[in-house]
Design a protein around this nucleic acid. Sequence first.
DNA 1: GTCTATACGTAGATAGAC
DNA 2: GTCTATCTACGTATAGAC
Lengths: 214, 214
Amino acid sequence: MSPPTRSRLRAHPASLPPSAPSDGTRRRILETALQLFASRGYHDTSIRDLAKVLELQPSALYAHFSSKEHVLAELVRIGHEAHHDALQAALKSSGPEPAEQVRALVRAHTRTHALHPQLAVVVNEELYALTPELAEPAVLLRDKSAALLAEVIERGVAQRSFSPPHPRVAAAAISAMGVRLPYWYEPGSALDVDTLADLHAELALRMLGGSAAS
Amino acid sequence: MSPPTRSRLRAHPASLPPSAPSDGTRRRILETALQLFASRGYHDTSIRDLAKVLELQPSALYAHFSSKEHVLAELVRIGHEAHHDALQAALKSSGPEPAEQVRALVRAHTRTHALHPQLAVVVNEELYALTPELAEPAVLLRDKSAALLAEVIERGVAQRSFSPPHPRVAAAAISAMGVRLPYWYEPGSALDVDTLADLHAELALRMLGGSAAS
DNA sequence: GTCTATACGTAGATAGAC
DNA sequence: GTCTATCTACGTATAGAC
């Protein structure tokens, strides 16, 4: 661990989604790793750093994870599953109109990134640190999540509910709003998460154009 | 360097802006470091890795930079200056209307990120790896660059050219489009940089609303 | 300005007792 | 499941010859 660094994030402490293991030590390791990986980065966090915060000996971690990389892989898996589950639930509970579905998807995307900023940062910045085999399940989920938005936009364009200048670029811009959230949004601020989610949905619909924007 | 990793980026080779030093070995070190830091990350790139690609002995690098951190600091400085210079030039060469100024700023922001994707990634992901003293000049430039866009938006709102639902959130969304570009855009693709810059400008104006959007 | 050689710390991970 | 102790490799950086 290189010493005098700022954190990449403002949020404290690290929050795991409910789907994460509730077991004792394994969960503590994941929470601590999440905080350290998010604030300093995976490669700048050592097993010894983790053990120190956990008040364990480094060797004790290997009773719970076979390597440091497997700790990261588990966080990456949890993060992608929570994100994808949230998007699917949002779609499922919304009606058939593309505008309503975009609103639901963007709200879920934004909420996930605002409520679990450390997980979002680790998932997005440290995925590349995994071997292809360990990264593969997450990469597949990413593609599926991106397809959910892309398909709704395509449908909206086909129905002439939307008129984006370029659907793929608009989809990337919509995704980017959420992904960048952890780097500037301060959770306890005057702007609450629900309001933010509504704002992002509004911006997304404006970008997509057509009769859908309010 | 941990071995079997994917790159964070598609772009090759690393391109430095014209403002970078044209001197021989120092420039070669910066270019090589840029490529490695962008694809594998600063903390996962060793002095030995750098030296191997450069076909030099590790100790030879210390004739040009006093530490690995100073190599990163120089890249971060170059990246922030090129970005800020591009934004200022864009503002300077555009008229007084907020919509035209936003278009110019967004085009410059997007072009910078599309033309120098490795530099954008290193600047955005590895700034936190610098000590506060080495990071400070870049942080000041970031704030100045962000203020350029914020002020134009504020002026547009005051003149009722723009009607964003929330100016600060809209500004963050506009910035995010460019920052995320290196992670999905493939430079040699059918979508050329100028078209992309126009698309982003169009999306920005749609988000800002009012009479400005085309 | 590059080389050889090396100092010195820390990395990830394991062995074996309790 | 946690401990003490340790292995081996690699990290940044320096010394001093050419």
